[in-house]
């Protein structure tokens, strides 16, 4: 049962020391998502940011005062900062297939690590948005009986996502447990 290989493997975080304030429960190699996902995330962030900025500018249409544009300006600044951080954020997404569970990490400022035992997976979903499809990527979603598990691995090349799904379903079957 060899796990499928996935694209880039790189370690971008600084190596943690015992005194490091950063969270790093499982130091070592992580499987990273495809760098093409940066494009998807950039475009998605841009679209939602522009929509928010435009929506916040609507009051200004009725009251032509400069300060009515403040919310819109704040939104634009937030969008630019978010856009600048997208590449780092995408590089921080990682997962690791361990013997009995899947370990997942994401976030730099807000870090999150989650461990989902294979036997707890109720279903594995692959979904592809229009942007992701254009660059040949897919999103893998693991569903357990707990809604808060909420584990989604974005930016997987479609063949990797399918191989990973088949692998996960196979190992989940051998470790099947009750609820």
């Amino acid at each position: 049962m060899t796990p499928p290989s996935t694209g880039a493997r790189a370690s971008v975080e600084p190596v943690s020391t015992p005194e490091s304030p950063r969270l790093d429960p499982a130091p070592g190699d992580w499987r990273r998502v495809s760098p093409r996902y940066i494009v998807v995330d950039l475009v998605g962030t841009l679209i939602s940011g522009l929509l928010t900025t435009a929506a916040l500018a609507v009051p200004w249409w009725f009251v032509r005062e400069w300060w009515m544009l403040l919310p819109s300006a704040v939104s634009a600044v937030v969008m630019v900062v978010t856009l600048a951080l997208v590449p780092r954020r995408v590089r921080a997404i990682g997962y690791r297939l361990r013997d009995d569970d899947l370990l997942f990490r994401r976030g730099i400022l807000f870090q999150r690590f989650a461990a989902v035992p294979y036997g707890r997976m109720q279903l594995v979903d692959i979904s592809r948005g229009p942007l992701a499809r254009a660059v040949g990527l897919a999103e893998l979603k693991l569903v357990t009986a707990a809604a808060s598990s909420n584990l989604t691995i974005p930016g997987l090349p479609i063949e990797d996502a399918e191989a990973l799904r088949d692998h996960l379903v196979a190992v989940a079957e051998t470790r099947r447990a009750g609820l």
Partner: peptide, 21 residues
């Protein structure tokens, strides 16, 4: 432990400043 579905650790900027999680 036989019933838990998964586990997670979180850390935001505030918790990081205090070396907490």
């Amino acid at each position: 432990t036989a019933r838990m579905q998964s586990a997670a650790v979180h850390q935001g900027p505030l918790l990081r400043a205090l070396r907490l999680a």
